[in-house]
Amino acid sequence: MGILENKFQDNVVVASMDKLLGWARSTSPWFFQFGLACCAIEMMATAASRYDLMRIGMIPRSSPRQADVMIVAGTVTMKMSLRVKKLYEQMANPKYVIAMGSCATSGGPYWQYGYHVLKGVDLVVPVDVYVPGCPPRPEALIEGLLKLQEKIQAERPLTKKIA
């Protein structure tokens, strides 16, 4: 790409396919609203008027087949863990998971005597970004989403296929 830069007019941009795909995929991840408990209220507040989530390209979708990112917000219990796995498998590739709050990260305040609490959602689905807090502030959730965008940008989807 180095030799082709600045050789054309101003409105012609040259970039690698990987970078273009990364930019397109990372800047509009639609999230699967999987609000379970208290963190769901903070997720709703993040999507509402003051900390608008739509300005970074995220729209709430209620069906897993239309979503890219699953934000697991709240405590996952044993009864619910089987459904979490089922819904994760229904999402289409490429898919990512954000574990929001300390309950989804590692069981939260219920880790010691909670017989029915799943100690971290990463026991059933693979997690990409952990956002700590109880509940995390909307700014913390937005930072987690931006980190996820960096992670998606850094993927090389085409390079992997060729090699």
Partner: peptide, 9 residues
């Protein structure tokens, strides 16, 4: 689905 064992805690 959200039984978090509050009374046991």
């Amino acid at each position: 689905y959200l039984h978090r064992c509050f009374e046991k805690h």
